[in-house]
Design a protein around this nucleic acid. Structure first.
Lengths: 365, 365
DNA sequence: GCGCGATGCGGTAACGTTATCAGAGAGGTT
DNA sequence: AACCTCTCTGATAACGTTACCGCATCGCGC
């Protein structure tokens, strides 16, 4: 009776390597981790067997035994979203340098998926989580539970949320304020907002920045100039359609605004389409500003004035913050940091006709 | 001397639950997995303790012991890319229904990252991998190694690659052929291609479809009408700039094409910007067709004629194919499936002036 | 009264790795 | 000669879970 009834596809283990190299499993472990004392001779002998069998250490066993992992989870709302994309890329850059790998999960506007993704991260005992989704009640509760269990978590792009959790965000309020003030400085007095109904937009920092800028210059915020869907925005795909519809509404008013500030670039681009389809000239008949500085915004007709949030910096900062928490688990139990970065106004042709002459911003960089 | 010197943050285990519930760990396992025989009484008692301690089973230990996992890895080129986004979303839909979770990793054009991500998946003993990246030599070798080890893998969007691995793709060749034939049917005879230098584009199915359609109608493929960068395209961000530059080149020729087929929508959009900046009217002076049907393509001026590849179907098919391989590990060792789905031409204003009247395609759906 | 299947629960031994300790030899210092 | 410090290697025992086997008990049919 043959002894090897094993699967032919079974993965080699440290024990297999050890047997073939004529050493103890412990020595194999020391070689593959480059830790402890191993003579050059044995090291080489073991390495040869490792290469020959194409041995890959089992991360599950490693994590189980060592009680730590080098994986961090990133939770994003939906990929596609340029913000998530740039964020995730920069987070990964920083993590890779520190020897961590990262797995991404997306919620796709589903609270059920959000919970499932968070639990999957937790169950796999990731070293930490970066969360870039909008807040949900259930999600925040879960995050707090995880934090109590000692799992390092950093939130990105949130203004509020569980106070015990660290945060990195950009100053959306100030960015919106700057954009609206730019429109005001061009002489506009009738400025609309696209991105939500008067009721629904309330809590948004970008909307608040718009309102505050208007008030600071004694301009009227008219409810009929606040346009957009009642519900929360869906995934990226629908945003342009929402912007299109909102602009149609604004243009149908007897007294229309001469400028609009849109909650984000996709919405702004939809609004531009609507204006064009009605023969309304941009920026002469109506000026449009967006938010986010998505790559496409430089290629619209005319190029879109927008606000760039420092996505890359947010990603890098979040990653560094998380790493700090991981390396130094419990400095002060409830000491949560908050980092708020500046936004930057980018003036282009959708607000200023001969903008190229006036502003130094690059267009197709 | 107190016995509990344990970390205060330590996770509860089946043993902890078992002690508190006054049962054996095995019984706890049966309850949380809903397997085997457990009396209603004990089941409830255990469940109460599980809820009270907020017990989460350790996926590492589970996977290690049971030798299988319910996680599948998805490898995408870069998020941001609408194709990856839709693909990943649909893959996840199918997987979630079957009780699998998925983790995403991206390569960001880095072969080093590609290998690192694949190894991370493998080391964590995922149940399978969906690979949607462009082929690289090192990556393909690794994939073959994994396949030999019995790890189920499905490739998406590849025409070639290791023959032992299953594949799902769309018929890019036919899609390009249809788009170019559409241009020809409009009377165009001088049709350019944007998306790579004559030398670099050769292997691309989309380019081949363009050439074939031209030949089939006895039209000349001129090298000077093939425009684009020599190197492989970088991430999404640079595509519009590449399209812009390529179109500038085509427009500078003494004998210019009257229509162009662009390798993808972002490139086409960059080309449109260039045409507009030079006062060349679309579609009357030059007609432009793209590929991919990205959401923005319906909102350009004029809306872009493009080819939709069945991304959602590809994602769902890939997921189902992978699941089949997982459930039924070794039907025939080297039997790899290949599935090729059709593309669909979407005619819009960038090729036909009064397209809305002629075609039933929705614009802002 | 015996056999037999279904039910209910626990004990034991892994899965593959590494932390920890233990020991052995080499070299140097008091 | 006694003692310490490096260097090197191996044995053992976990990490948290579940597969597998074993032992009860119950009900039912002959």
């Amino acid at each position: 009776m043959p002894k090897r009834i094993r699967d032919k596809h079974r993965h080699p283990t440290v024990v297999d390597i050890a047997k073939l190299a004529g050493v103890a499993p412990m020595t194999v472990s020391r070689v593959i981790n480059d830790s402890g004392y191993v003579s050059a001779e044995l090291r080489e002998k073991v390495q040869r067997v490792v290469d020959k069998l194409e041995y890959h250490p089992n991360a599950l066993a490693r994590g189980l035994k060592s009680q730590r992992s080098h994986v961090i989870g990133i939770l994003a709302p939906d990929i596609q979203n340029p913000f998530s994309a740039e964020l995730a890329g920069n987070i990964q850059d920083v993590l890779l340098e520190s020897g961590y790998t990262s797995f991404l999960s997306t919620t796709e506007q589903s609270s059920k998926r959000e919970l499932a993704a968070l639990r999957a991260f937790f169950d796999h005992r990731v070293a930490g989580i970066v969360v870039a989704t909008r807040e949900t009640e259930a999600g925040d509760e879960e995050l707090e539970r995880f934090t109590r269990r000692g799992l390092p978590i950093v939130l990105v792009g949130r203004s509020s949320g569980p106070s015990s959790i660290s945060r990195v965000t950009a100053d959306h309020w100030k960015g919106a304020y700057d954009a609206v003030e730019h429109l005001i400085s061009l002489g506009h007095k009738h400025i609309g907002y696209i991105g939500g109904s008067p009721g629904a937009a309330g809590r948004l920092r970008r909307f608040q920045g718009y309102c505050e800028a208007m008030r600071a210059h004694s301009l009227e915020v008219r409810d009929e100039w606040i346009a957009g869907p009642d519900a929360e925005f869906g995934p990226g795909y629908s945003r342009q359609a929402d912007g299109y519809a909102a602009m149609e509404h604004l243009l149908s008013l007897t007294e229309r605004p001469t400028a609009v500030f849109a909650r984000n670039d996709f919405t702004a681009m939809g609004a531009m389409s609507a204006a064009r389809d009605r023969g309304v000239a941009i920026p002469n008949d109506i000026a449009i500003a967006g938010f986010d500085n998505v790559p496409q915004s430089a290629f619209t007709t005319p190029p879109l004035t927008t606000v760039a949030q420092s996505t890359a910096e947010q990603g890098r900062a979040a990653a560094r913050m998380l790493l700090a928490r991981i390396e130094n688990p419990a400095p002060a139990p409830a000491e949560s940091e908050t980092l708020c970065l500046d936004c930057r106004l980018i003036v282009r042709g959708s607000t200023v006709a001969n903008w190229k002459a006036k502003h130094a911003e690059t267009t197709h960089a």
